[in-house]
Each structure stands twice: as C-alpha cells, then as structure tokens.
C-alpha cells in the first residue's frame, strides 16, 4: 500500500571501497562491519527540494573588484539518471582551489598565493534539461601529505542532491590529459572502468572566443528500478 519505487542498487563496479589504504585517511575512517542493506522507504525516496539551499551563484571568479587570475573556463553539463533522463531542478554545488592550487581555507597549508578576486565556490539549480553552467578559473594541482611527493590532480569538487536522499552524490571533476590522475589515490580508489566518468572533456562549442575555454562534465545519478507494475509482471 505504501511501498515506494526504489532507486536501483549499486552495481558494485562504480564506487570505491570505503577502505582504500593507498588513501591513508580511509584507514581509520571506514567501517569495518558490512553495511546493512535496507529497503527504500519514504525516507530514502524523498529528499530536500532545491528551495532549502541558498541563492544561486554561477560565477566563481567574482568576489573582489578585480579579475581572478588564471585560465578562465566554462564548466557545463547535464545531470542525468542512469536511464538518460534529465534531473531537473536539482542543486549542484561546487568548490575548488584557485589557479595556484590554494583553497580559501585556514587549514590549507600549501604555500601558494590566495587570490583576493577568486571566490572559489558556487551553486546553481539544474534547468528543465538537467543542465548547469559555471564560470570559473582552471584550478591548479596542489600537494598533500598522503605520501612522499603526493599531488592532487586539478579538480573541481561537486555536490549534488538529485531527487531523493538516496541519490545524494559528492564527487570530483578532473581534466582530460592530466598525468596526475593515474597516480592519485583518491581518483584511483574508484574501479578503473568507472574512473573516466569523473573526467570532463574539452569542448570547442562551449568555448567562448576571446574569453574562456569550455569543458563539459555530465553527471549520472542513480536511476530507478522498474515501476511497481512492471515488478509484478516479473514475478
């Protein structure tokens, strides 16, 4: 009577193991007990609407009066489900280091300059086609202390809600051709076959002449199982 239409289960070949020892911080921060599988209820198939989050901000370059330093880029794409359906009216939040590889964060110890004209964070709601678009600066690679001579590939952090609590996703977007991806324990924690899904592609059609290079990053959230009606026929 109150059974809900569940989201599709993880295929087992998409996400990292929570314990991925090459990424040292996972060792004491990943459950040792197996996850308990639960059926989806109203709790899991509902989720916050786009109204609960803050006003949109699609230009990460503007905060001061001057121009942010670095290579101006446009990052755009569609949020889709696994069946290719657009996910409209959904919050997409992003944040990133500046062109020098430095975050606006007190715990960032990288001795690279802050840029007073770079905001470094933004958020928009997808349109009816599931599309989003940001103007930003290409982030720099930055060192971290995971192992000797460790560098994160250039990346933009993405946070997405999708339609439900069950579809929530936080991920990172990488840039094509970056040699650091193949030696990054965070990117490489993901099964090899799924890793390329986190790499954006350069697109000359998105590129604006005399202004900014264009990158496309489509994001795919979990799709739904067959409708309950189809389920009944299956049995």
């Amino acid at each position: 009577m109150t059974d809900v239409l569940a989201y599709r289960a993880d295929d087992g070949n998409t996400h990292a193991n929570s314990l991925s020892p090459a990424y040292g911080s996972t060792v004491r921060r990943s459950p040792s007990q197996p996850l308990v599988a639960i059926p989806h209820t109203l709790t899991e198939v509902t989720g916050p609407s786009s109204q609960v989050l803050r006003a949109s901000l699609d230009d990460l370059t503007k905060i001061g009066t001057g121009e942010a330093l670095g290579e101006r880029i446009i990052v755009t794409g569609r949020v889709l489900d696994e069946d290719g359906r657009p996910v409209p009216n959904s919050v997409v939040e992003v944040w990133q280091a500046n062109a020098a590889g430095r975050y606006i964060h007190e715990r960032d110890q990288h001795p690279a300059p802050l840029d007073p004209n770079f905001r470094g964070e933004g958020r928009v709601v997808t349109d009816a086609d599931g599309r989003y678009r940001f103007l930003t600066i290409k982030p720099g690679a930055y060192p971290w202390k995971n192992h000797h001579n460790a560098w994160r590939p250039a990346h933009i952090h993405f946070s997405l809600f999708g339609p439900a609590f069950a579809t929530r996703l936080v991920t990172q977007m990488y840039f094509p051709g970056d040699p650091l991806i193949a030696i990054d324990p965070i990117a490489c924690a993901v099964p090899a076959a799924a890793r390329d899904r986190m790499v954006s592609r350069f697109d000359l059609d998105v590129t604006e002449p005399e202004f900014a290079l264009g990158y496309v990053f489509d994001i795919v959230l979990r799709g739904r199982n067959a409708t309950p009606m189809e389920d009944k026929h299956d049995h």
């Binding site: 993880d10 998409t14 911080s25 696994e82 991920t171 990172q172 986190m198 795919v220 959230l221």
Partner: peptide, 8 residues
C-alpha cells in the same frame, strides 16, 4: 549510462 563515482 554508468553512474558517476563518489569521491571524498
């Protein structure tokens, strides 16, 4: 389409 992987 394959789902986009999660990252920290």
């Amino acid at each position: 389409y394959g789902a986009t992987p999660s990252q920290t």
